[in-house]
């Protein structure tokens, strides 16, 4: 049995949004300590790694390790049905073939408001364990959701069942690495740089020197350069730019992938870039005290 309740369900919504353009299918690996996802894009150029620690949930139970294979597009469709203020509970049986997702609105008063209406409403085909007189079940009829699962509404509690699948994903062992350069900067600023640079070309060079971090692109239209300097004493934490450098590093990357990574911008005010010569960059978005989403991107290298 696996059960985990996240008061801030928005995190889960944003996480799936942040990986569904990169990864079609992946496993959610559940253990005592955390839920994690590791998956590569189809062409194995990039890798995404998610970790949400069990301590970040307000309820967490995982009796034995589970791998829940899911389709990211379908999960994204279901999570779109959760409000930004909703708490989300994930539930799975040890040998089940579906993941149950329960969305609860913040306004519990609505339960009373809808009581009479619901009793008189259509059918009362109650799911197991629910309060029979207070719920009803609707098969998915929305065109976009046909066949994805079943929706059960209990007033302001919605229960969705996502069909799970067996996924043979190739898991890469990523060693802990001391990187030569660590840059922390506002995630919104990073997103803007990536968006603007894409106008000019498809390859971005990131160069870190004593001067600061230089983002550069060369294309048919012309060239673009943005220099970010250390600003460790900005008034707000999230405005700070901090650069730790052991030695200068310059690497080049496909902007297409960096652009996918910036879909995680809403998860936090800060992004951390880790670089060493001739190895993948790590683009990390910390998620409060709960965990992180990290993207790894293989560089372009002279052979």
């Amino acid at each position: 049995m696996f059960e985990a309740r996240l008061t801030s369900g928005k995190i889960l919504k944003q996480l799936i949004e942040a990986l569904k353009d990169l990864v079609q299918e992946a496993n959610i690996d559940c253990s005592d300590d955390e839920i994690s996802i590791q998956a590569m894009d189809n062409s194995h150029v990039s890798l995404v790694a998610v970790s949400l620690r069990s301590g970040g949930f307000d309820h967490f139970r995982c009796d034995r390790p589970l791998s829940l294979g899911f389709n990211a597009t379908n999960m994204g469709k279901i999570l779109k049905c959760a409000g930004n203020e909703d708490a989300i509970t994930l539930k799975a049986e040890d040998d089940g073939d579906s993941l149950s997702m329960v969305f609860e609105g913040p306004n519990q008063d609505r339960i009373a408001d809808f009581g009479e209406f619901a009793r008189g409403a259509r059918g009362s085909d109650s799911p197991p364990g629910s309060r029979r007189e207070k719920c009803w079940k609707i098969d998915f009829n929305f065109a976009t959701m046909r066949g994805v699962g079943v929706l059960v509404v209990i007033f302001d509690r919605k229960i969705y069942e996502l069909k799970l699948m067996d996924i043979d994903s190739e898991q890469l062992g990523i060693p802990d690495t001391d990187y030569k350069v660590t840059i922390q900067m506002p995630s919104g600023e990073f997103q803007r740089i990536i968006r603007d640079m894409q106008v000019l070309g498809d390859t971005l060079s990131i160069s870190c020197t004593k001067e600061g971090v230089k983002f550069g692109v060369q294309g048919d239209l012309g060239t673009g350069n943005v220099l970010i300097r250390q600003n460790a004493h900005a008034e707000k934490d999230e405005d700070r730019v901090m650069i730790e450098m052991e030695e200068p590093v310059e690497l080049t990357f496909a902007l297409r992938y960096l652009n996918f990574f910036t879909k995680a911008t809403n998860l936090g005010p800060t992004v951390i870039l880790n670089m060493s010569p001739d190895v993948p960059i790590v683009v990390e978005y910390p998620i409060g005290e709960t965990g992180h989403i990290k993207y790894y991107l293989a560089p372009k290298i002279d052979e």
């Binding site: 590569m40 062409s43 150029v45 890469l172 062992g173 080049t252 993948p280 293989a298 372009k300 290298i301």
Partner: peptide, 14 residues
Amino acid sequence: KKPQMRMDSFFSLK
């Protein structure tokens, strides 16, 4: 033009 590397070139399978 520099060729694009793949993740498998850097990390091995678990």
